[in-house]
Design a protein around this nucleic acid. Sequence first.
DNA 1: CACAAGCTGGAACGAACGCTCTATCCAGTA
DNA 2: TACTGGATAGAGCGTTCGTTCCAGCTTGTG
Lengths: 195, 195
Amino acid sequence: MAEDTPQLGTRERILRTASLLMQRQGYEGTGIKQVSQEAGATLGSVYHFFPGGKQALAVAAVQHADQEFADMLSASLSGEADPAKAVAACARALAGHLRDSGWVDGCPISATALETVGRAPEIEQAVAQAFQHWRDLVADTLREAGFPEDDARDLAITIINTLEGAELTAQVFKSETPLLVAGEHLARLIGSYRG
Amino acid sequence: MAEDTPQLGTRERILRTASLLMQRQGYEGTGIKQVSQEAGATLGSVYHFFPGGKQALAVAAVQHADQEFADMLSASLSGEADPAKAVAACARALAGHLRDSGWVDGCPISATALETVGRAPEIEQAVAQAFQHWRDLVADTLREAGFPEDDARDLAITIINTLEGAELTAQVFKSETPLLVAGEHLARLIGSYRG
DNA sequence: CACAAGCTGGAACGAACGCTCTATCCAGTA
DNA sequence: TACTGGATAGAGCGTTCGTTCCAGCTTGTG
């Protein structure tokens, strides 16, 4: 898993491995021993760097995924001047990445989110911060393109939601279609605020 | 959990309990022993009715949830003649139900879907069938309202996706807003095909 | 009343879980 | 050279997991 990147520090290797495994298997489905093995670390190291145990590791992994996905989102959004086209391009990028991964690498945190909602406050909060972070990136893009504050905020909510749901569905059907259709519909929705 | 409905048969009680627990905790987070206890049944009964073990129980629970959600969807959609209004009403219904449950009862199968994608083919297939089922219900509604076949199919995809994503986000933020905004945006999107 | 079939109850199994613990290693410092 | 403290290593704790197994209980039929 991450044994092929030994130049990274142990903590970083554990974090990346945990994030990847939780993306694919969820929080409950990912064991600390599996993380340590696939990261090329030992159990002792995991507890050394994350004294809070599995929950602390999950929070850090969610935050790591948050930042990684935000970078990808920023890059996608800044590639097009028209926000409608930018969102559609973003959906296409997600679809391509998902297909290339064999339909396993969807949203990095939604599985964890669904398993821990109402049951692990620290993790829940990290997930909420990530969603808010991504939403803000989209809202900023819309505002800079001239959309009024209220419209930008509401559209950003729906854009993130729709991409989230489309990615889930694309995984289930192992098809790019839901994401591509979502991209076009979101572009149409954004465009409908222009007139 | 289900001890208060002893008039139901044991198999049905196990099924409902499994479905509810998997909705809230996911597949990995839900144990067979927990199901048997909260269903007021014994371990022997679970394996008697579901000889295929946890996976078979999960498949049956997903199918049960499929039918239950489909009924709710049909009722919501048939309440309004205009499909745009019907979808918005549906989003409001989901938001109300989610709030009443203390933000824990979201989509009954998405947690299970995310945990098992690419790792448990039987469960994956049951999830895909459920999604297709719901999508068909929406597409039928749109077709009956006069939408062309292609538009109805594409819109149905996005409507289910968006509701799915909005429900996830509403759970994370413990707020009805994502679902309500999604309902309005979906109504707007549907309306944009009218002109 | 007897008897099979369907169902229930729960002990027990091996494996895996999260986590704790002690021991060892080793670069940096005095 | 002696010491210190972060990092590594993994055995082993108690618990829970999914599963198996079988004795006992009901229930309906002859």
